[in-house]
């Protein structure tokens, strides 16, 4: 196999005496793959994802992006957080434009075009001049996604981005995120503890144990559900069969030292 796009190589992570990621974590992620890290809260999956962004350093091992050390944060790896995901003092358009603020390679004209392009893509063109406190939580998350796309991030790191949304908004946003991924292919590492969300979104699910994080399973969802994920997928037999399967796996993982 040719060299992996994103490579977790022999990772361990300790905070003081607490082992967060058990030795030695290895994972290869392909270009444009949508990978979901699924595991109980506080298991260390977020820490692993943050390492990709350069926001956390592994105690041992390396994160390689296209064969090179990922290193300190830059705009190739964009973050979408659950809360505080956009700046309240900027309008939605300004928030998206913020993704390009430190890019010297784009002219002002290009920046404006990209800004409206991505606002359009996430369906917020009509709210360009609104401040985040005036729009719904779902819209704020869309802004954050648009910002990382505008920044030109190749890897999207998403830390339970829809965790604070109500069920309907969440479903809609999940379907949209899949669509965006189809249209504007990016490698995504998406962290969640919600099984249904994981199954719906993922090309591939990595199931984690409780802390210290260990990989329990590596599930190929793409070959079962295919790349297109309309909202109606949730009503299909194959969807909830898979969901039940994963759910049982996660339950077993959560209970393994209780």
């Amino acid at each position: 196999m040719s060299e992996p796009y994103l490579f977790f190589h022999g990772i361990t992570k300790r905070f003081g005496d607490t082992e967060v990621v058990a030795p030695f974590f290895d994972l290869k992620i392909a270009h444009n793959e949508f990978v979901v890290f699924l595991g109980p809260s506080g298991c260390g999956k977020t820490t692993l994802m943050r390492m990709v962004g350069g926001l956390e350093m592994p105690t041992t091992g390396q994160i390689l992006l296209e064969g090179e050390l990922a290193g300190p944060p830059d705009r190739r790896r964009g973050m979408v957080f659950q809360s505080y995901s956009s700046f309240p003092w900027l309008t939605l358009a300004e928030n998206v434009a913020y993704g390009m603020r430190y890019r010297g390679d784009l002219s002002a004209e290009e920046k404006r075009e990209r800004c409206s392009h991505y606002l359009e893509m996430v369906g917020l063109a009509d709210f360009a001049d609104a401040y985040p406190n005036r729009v719904s939580g779902g819209m704020r998350q869309r802004v954050a996604i648009a910002r990382t796309l505008a920044a030109g991030s190749e890897v999207l790191l998403m830390d339970e981005p829809f965790g604070a949304l109500d069920a309907q908004r969440r479903e809609r946003l999940q379907a949209e995120l899949r669509k965006i991924h189809r249209r504007d292919a990016k490698t995504v590492v998406f962290v969640t503890h919600d099984v249904e969300e994981a199954v719906f979104l993922a090309d591939r699910i990595i199931v984690f144990s409780r802390r210290p994080a260990r990989m329990l399973a590596d599930l190929d969802v793409l070959s079962i559900l295919g790349p297109d994920r309309p909202i109606s997928l949730r009503d299909e037999e194959r969807f909830f069969r898979l969901r039940t399967e994963v759910l049982q796996m996660v339950r077993a993982a959560a209970g393994d030292d209780e």
Binding site: M79, F87, R101, Y102, R147, A151
Partner: peptide, 29 residues
Amino acid sequence: APHEYIEIAFTVGAKPRHILTDVCFRSML
């Protein structure tokens, strides 16, 4: 100033001096 803001800035390519003025100062106003 929420840590998330600072990390967002880092992941769009900001340098510490940018973060000080564009994010920390702005968010604490």
